[in-house]
Design a protein around this nucleic acid. Structure first.
Lengths: 343, 343
DNA sequence: GTTAGCACTCTTTGTGCCCGACTGCTAACT
DNA sequence: AGTTAGCAGTCGGGCACAAAGAGTGCTAAC
């Protein structure tokens, strides 16, 4: 069977109505609300077709239709129109970033907060470090007999601290010397460059091999998995939505993901390159994706540097239209801010 | 009316049984399970007395009794006996700290995790810094034209980074000079000392007043409210307990506190001095305490230095006996570890 | 291809009823 | 005076049943 234009239109109505009302959608309500020109009987036969094609489900014989996962997917890729934010909403976004634009940490906090407030879903973020940030300074000093504290300071306010093992007989002078060496070698380089540079340089620096390895570890650790930079807001918002209201098991599942920075990191790190807004619907394949959930993410960058992946996680029956427009709206404001900040 | 010994015994039975079964307790079940020597009619008249005294409530005529907040309070202070942990449980605690005892952050993580697992409640921690830690090093360097990055490194792995404003015309040399000055002044001092020292020294250092103020701010900020050190685990565990299973509003309230580091910090910072285990039952007076919740906390210290406040937050009907023994058990192991670490 | 009409299905809601779980009270007992 | 057995009274939970309502699929006519 082919998806005729009318079928598409009807499917769009069903999904949109179900998102808005959280109730199975009947043929009658479609004709009354959206398509006064045709009769409910016609819609009924179209609905039967859509159900056969796998886009709709029926809870029982005499109930209205509910969208399937496939329907949601089609909806966000083809059927959904984009909405504009109201001026009140854009105002709220601008307001959120009024202060504290200096500190990236706070910027991210504010972004996550305003996203959660505007969408009424749980929002999450992974602040960006694709390895493109420059190393401003490396600092190294003795902490205990066999341990030194390593600090790697990059632009974007980000600091990585890590303890590394050092030989017991190392003098303070040698540690300082090693620190100078590290700064000479890595200062001004991008993290990514430093990582590949490390493969080559390792041979040259015999004397401080242990320290050197520690630094490389720290940088790799930082690029590959920095769970500390996962931020969440509005974890309890899931309970505002009826599908989670009487299902403790579902809520528990959801929370076990949303409150685990490791699991969220796993979900957020996979961003499709170049796609502005990425929508993942339904669990299934992805290990850490909670059952019956959707994740909508957007990755922002300014002047070529990624500044983070922001997203919203919630039920399948999510207001994708609104979520997408909020994420885009925040993205625009964020871009402006980062541009001005550069000066 | 006086609280006779028998009344106390019966009240203990009611509270213990209610904690175990989550069901109103009847006079019959008391005689059958705990007090075979007297009849249910006798227990009934005692229960009526206890109810009049405000220790018990009845949901409706012909239902069993449920403990009041007062009853819980009496239970934990007077009636409850302490339990020993099983060897399996102490084993689990030791196991949890097997590795990573070097990094205080991970120690705290593990503590919180094992507490949550053993008790089946949400557990929280505030790693300790009463201001007793020594400043090991202060580092200062230019970040942007009018900003410098300040690092304060203390023992216990704790690092505080903060941006401070600097005069635009300050040279790199001056910044370094200021850094040296700060190290000379504060190095080796305890945070608290540094804070009071600051009041005096400020006058002497006219040249770097702005920087100096920034440092004092950072230290104060750190001592007074370091929300970054609030850690939680098992947020969803609340749903394992029937009183929260069908009350989305209650869960939302609970989560809004447990997922807010600020609110948790407010709750955890108030620790009664010298009391080993602190039990706060019921919301009411405390602003950030969720309705109908209890918070059991223990503050650990080793060699006179506080290493943190750990706790469990959950329903009024909490297994106080188990929670207290787990907190004590973890405390002992933690103390051992910190003692060994000092070497 | 579309529509009106109708029979059918299934859920939801409300009602009455009974059963069981407790209590409180009273009168008798120790 | 304290304790106990027995009994009447209260309330919630569960079940059956009926009625109402929502929505569909099918058919025959347009």
């Amino acid at each position: 069977m082919k998806l005729s234009e009318r079928k598409k239109k009807i499917l769009r109505c069903v999904v949109a109505d179900y998102i808005a009302e959280a109730q199975p959608v009947s043929s009658k309500s479609i004709t009354e609300k959206y398509m006064k020109d045709i009769s409910s009987a016609t819609v009924r036969s179209e609905l039967a077709g859509l159900e056969e094609m796998g886009y709709l489900n029926q809870l029982h014989t005499s109930s209205g239709r509910v969208p399937s996962i496939e329907a949601y997917k089609l909806y966000v890729t083809e059927l959904m129109d984009r909405s504009k934010l109201s001026s009140k909403e854009t105002g709220m976004i601008r307001e959120a970033f009024k202060d504290h634009v200096d500190n990236l940490e706070e910027v991210v906090q504010n972004a996550v907060k305003v996203i959660s407030e505007l969408t009424d879903y749980t929002s999450v973020a992974l602040s960006g470090h694709s390895g493109e940030e420059e190393i401003i300074k490396i600092d190294l000093f003795r902490y205990r007999k066999t341990q030194a504290l390593l600090l790697v300071v990059t632009e974007n306010t980000l600091i990585r601290d890590k303890f590394i093992e050092i030989p017991e007989n190392m003098t303070d002078g040698q540690i300082q010397d090693a620190g100078r060496m590290l700064n000479r070698l890595f200062g001004g380089k991008k993290l990514k460059e430093a990582l590949s540079l490390g493969q080559v340089a390792r041979e040259e620096i015999e004397s401080y091999k242990e320290i050197f390895d520690g630094v490389m570890d720290a940088i790799e650790d930082y690029i590959v998995r920095n769970k500390a930079d996962v931020i969440t807001e509005g974890e309890g918002k899931i309970l505002n939505h009826p599908e989670y209201n009487n299902d403790a098991e579902k809520v528990k599942n959801f929370l076990s993901v949303v409150t685990s920075k490791e699991k969220l990191f796993d979900l957020l790190k996979e961003k499709d390159d170049g796609i502005e807004v990425n929508i993942r619907i339904g669990g299934g394949q992805k290990e850490n994706m909670p059952e019956d959930c959707s994740l909508v993410t957007a990755t922002y960058s300014a002047s070529g540097v990624e500044i983070g992946t922001y997203g919203v996680i919630g039920p399948l029956r999510m207001d994708y239209r609104k979520v997408v427009s909020v994420l885009e709206g925040v993205g625009k404001v964020l871009e402006d801010i980062m541009k001005n900040k550069k000066d």
